[in-house]
Simulated assay, not measured.
Amino acid sequence: MASRSHRSPSGRRPTALASALAVAVAALVVALVLAFLPDRGSDADPTAATPAAGTQVTASPSAEKTPSKSASPSASASAGKSPSASATASASAAARKTPTRRAAATSAAHQAAAGAPLAGRIKPGVTYDGVATFYDVGNGDGACLYGPTSDTMTAAMNTADYETAKACGAYILVHSGGASVTVRITNECPAPCAPGQLDLSPQAFAKLADPTRGQIPITWSLLSPSTSDTISIRYKTGSSQYWCGIQAIGHRNPLARLEVRTGSGWLQLTREKFNYFLSEQGSGCGGDIRLTDIYGEQVQISGIGVKPDVVQSTRVQFAQH
């Protein structure tokens, strides 16, 4: 029979209690340590875990699209195909410092309108772009109905800038390739003539370029020429005291208004496309005439009778500008 152990049963109880206490203390220490460690849950990256063998690592889409903070601004801009902020600022500054030609032309037009309040599309002090062609002017007559002329320095104005005969009689200075010529508008150039286009007499075109070219780029502007001529008046064929058409000829500056004196004051007549001002009911026919140019200057003419198709001279002329 085996002998019993010399340790009594009561000796095992303290040992078990001590072990239990030790385990509890150790658990408490671990809990305290974990409690006081910094929280790393927000920095944890599941994709950073070591992959199992045979697993392909794929970069996160956000990692591809979001450059690191150390990436240079120029590199980021290149990747995104967007100009850098400095380049955009430079472009904006350049745009502010260098006005476009259209903006400059608009500003000039506003200034010209202030100096010529009655001007239409063609304003003094403004340079217009266009092309020049030429046509057979025949005896020199045209839509303005000035009649035959020996003056070869004439032109037809495109319909837009002709502006219902408002361009008739205007003197235009035309430039092309270092050459220039002054022409008087006596005709209208219908479509396909575009805004800005002038259809010159062959002689006027030849002063700018070889006629074999047919069409050339030009710039042009309104001119108030020096002249010793005075204005003339003509009544249209068929005019009488009951109906009349009145035309002014030889005015230095474009004509804005033609008025006739009636019993109730000055009556402004309507300008027709064929460059006559009509009094449909005969009001003022044979009476005093008042002309106003685009600058607002007025001249008054008396003693002009109703003589159809007769050019009657006056002693007046608009001032030069």
Rank of each mutant, 00 (worst) to 15 (best):
A132I: 02
G120F: 03
S70G: 03
A79V: 10
Q197C: 07
V183C: 01
V126L: 01
T127S: 09
Y162H: 09
D141E: 10
S90Y: 04
G80V: 10
S150F: 07
S84F: 06
V181H: 04
R101H: 05
G178P: 05
L173K: 14
E64G: 00
A75N: 08
A93K: 15
T88V: 14
A165T: 03
V126K: 02
G196Q: 04
R184E: 04
P83S: 01
K65A: 00
C193W: 03
A89V: 14
A85E: 06
F205I: 06
L198F: 01
I185W: 01
S150L: 14
A89Y: 04
A191N: 10
D199S: 08
G115Y: 07
S92A: 13
V131E: 09
A116G: 06
A167N: 01
A179M: 13
S176D: 07
H110E: 13
A109R: 12
P73N: 01
A206F: 00
S72P: 09
K97V: 11
A79Q: 11
T159G: 09
A191I: 11
R101A: 07
G178F: 07
G130V: 08
A87W: 09
T127N: 06
V137M: 13
T66W: 00
Y128I: 06
T152D: 05
D129L: 12
P124Y: 06
V183L: 05
S107I: 12
S84G: 12
I172E: 03
I172Q: 04
G120M: 08
A160G: 08
T186H: 05
K123R: 15
A79W: 05
A89Q: 12
S84T: 15
A143Q: 10
T159I: 13
L198S: 02
